[in-house]
Design a protein around this nucleic acid. Structure first.
Lengths: 331, 331
DNA sequence: ATGAAAGCGCTAACAG
DNA sequence: CTGTTAGCGCTTTCAT
């Protein structure tokens, strides 16, 4: 109670100088043990916490990391965030989490906010619709390092941490062909994203390479309900698919709803294979076979990259994480 | 490029005083149009952004709101966060999102962090294991308002925004009795939380009130896999339940996995009713009947409460949100 | 071993 | 209409 806990106040009460208090609290070797003890005791008593803003203003180094994602309620981002937060906490950083809700305008506002808060670094997973990277470049060149992850730009002149998307597509292809499937409906998200293009390329090219007898038709589903509708429509045709490939959890949820609506059995009526973080696949019967994309691993890697930037000052880098197949009974 | 954009710099280039620049940028009526124009142009050109930390240091008012939740990857919290963020953004606030991972120690560290960052307000959903509210009280009395939501303390001497948990329990009870069920396995989360106690009370008392012929056995499941195990074990007994009640999405996912594992059909083999935000219930066949708890509504309410605190300076308040039944085909 | 003083970037009261 | 000044809380150099 009473006056708030500041160095000045502590100094006033103890009748010593502000700098002595500051140094005592930092365990500076110059300060006498006795003084340190007194200062620390009073600081404790007064519940002293340094004013982060004043510290920043002085040191020009904020301990906040900006994180911009389209949507956090996504198991992939969630595990990414958890991992990143853990690593960040260890190093004394706080996460400023911002969601763009897949709106470029909001994304830009978030970027401004990061700049305004002079964050130490910004981690970004792009919105699907973002095409213009000008703002990112401007901020990047203004001194705040930007690390793109998952949904990264094509441009190689930046720092990226991402999954081996092409390999993931290939792994899916090999699984599908290995199970003797013939007619694949492959659902992808926003075609603007490199992540989409790479997964699609990996899948289609590998299948073509392995065998000429498997037919793949690729479609775009922008969200869960579109995926559901597309599946239902496809299953009503004569030439219906024997397998559905889902490039994300969002699409997978739509597909599950569609399958339930039609009362289909996996894998007899329709086989399913997805790229997922592993939570949704466990909810069906049989469980969905998926290629695991670990947000946790990516998050750790991203923080490592940030550390490297700090230490070595790189401005261009590409880190790639591998994935593995987890078998359920859906294919 | 070159020197960074500060008021001082702009003033230097234009050869006017810092305060004139500051006022021009704020569109202060005292300043000449011509001057304003010049200042604004240069500021634009230099990509000027005020230093948020300096502003805070001066005004003693940070535009950051702290948000502490056990886990954000929870559809309930997610929709809460989204709503809160939207409202906050409108008022120029940023969200500092912190997760406690159901660990009281981390929760306390997060609290400290909020204080360190001198946030304008802290929104908290308690960890299950948190028993000691001393730190909260200390911070609350240090001037930062704390608004508890969802997982709130029993104590009435604080600000709480929560669901009508007892009514939710009663609604579930009426639904179960209405469907003619006789033997209910009711699964609840951490018994320390008032949210758990109230839902349990509402359910059991209402059933007892309605009819003496329905048997309810309540159990505690601390997480998804415990819920799964409990269900499987219960279904192997002679006196097996005809209905499962799940007090949360986490428990519900475990129950779904258990049902799938045993190959049971809803509602014939087992009826299911849950309290949920509505995402998971849509993934099964038939869809799960649930009582909807809207995080979005709660989030909006929470922000309103904060506004009231700012304007009227209340320190004690209870807001309650109602819920409704959404029928799937699981009961 | 301790203190005095400057300054981070900004705002606002006061003075022309 | 514009400038001067003090100060938010802290770190750090330079004296002593």
């Amino acid at each position: 109670m009473g006056s708030k806990a500041t160095l000045k106040n502590i100094a006033g009460i103890l009748e010593i100088s502000i700098s002595t208090v500051s140094r005592a609290l930092k365990d500076h070797p110059d300060i006498a043990q006795e003084t340190k003890r007194k200062v620390r005791e009073l600081a404790e008593l007064m519940d002293y916490e340094p004013n982060a803003f004043a510290v920043y203003l002085r040191t020009n180094e904020s301990k906040v990391i900006g994180l911009i994602v389209p949507e956090i309620s996504n198991y992939f981002y969630h595990s990414f965030v958890s991992a990143l937060e853990n690593e960040a906490r260890k190093k004394g950083y706080t996460l400023l989490i911002l969601q763009s809700g897949n709106d470029s305008a909001v994304e830009e506002a978030n970027l401004r906010l990061c700049k305004l808060n002079r964050v130490a670094c910004i981690f970004v997973a792009l919105c699907s619709e973002t095409r213009d990277l000008a703002t990112f470049n401007r901020i990047g060149s203004s001194g705040i390092p930007i690390v793109f992850f998952d949904k990264v730009p094509e441009d190689n002149n930046c720092i990226k941490v991402c999954l081996a998307d092409r390999d993931i597509g290939r792994l899916a292809a090999r699984t599908i062909v290995g199970k003797g499937k013939k007619n694949v409906l492959a659902m992808f998200g926003n075609p603007n994203l490199s992540i989409t293009r790479k997964r699609k390329q990996g899948l289609t090219e590998e299948i073509k390479k392995l065998t000429p007898f498997v037919n793949v038709s690729t479609v775009t589903a922008n969200n869960s309900s579109e995926a559901k509708a597309i599946l239902i429509e496809a299953m009503e045709k004569k030439e219906k698919p024997d397998t559905v490939f889902c490039m994300s959890d969002e699409i997978l949820t739509g597909v599950i709803m569609g399958i339930n609506k039609l009362g289909l059995k996996m894998p007899q009526d329709i086989a399913v294979i997805a790229i997922s973080n592993g939570f949704i696949p466990k909810l069906t019967n049989p469980e969905i076979t998926y290629i695991e994309t670990s947000g946790a691993v990516l998050g750790k890697k991203a923080m490592q990259t940030f550390t490297e930037i700090l230490e070595k000052g790189i401005s261009k880098k590409l880190d790639v994480i591998n994935s593995k197949l987890v078998e359920g009974g859906s294919i």
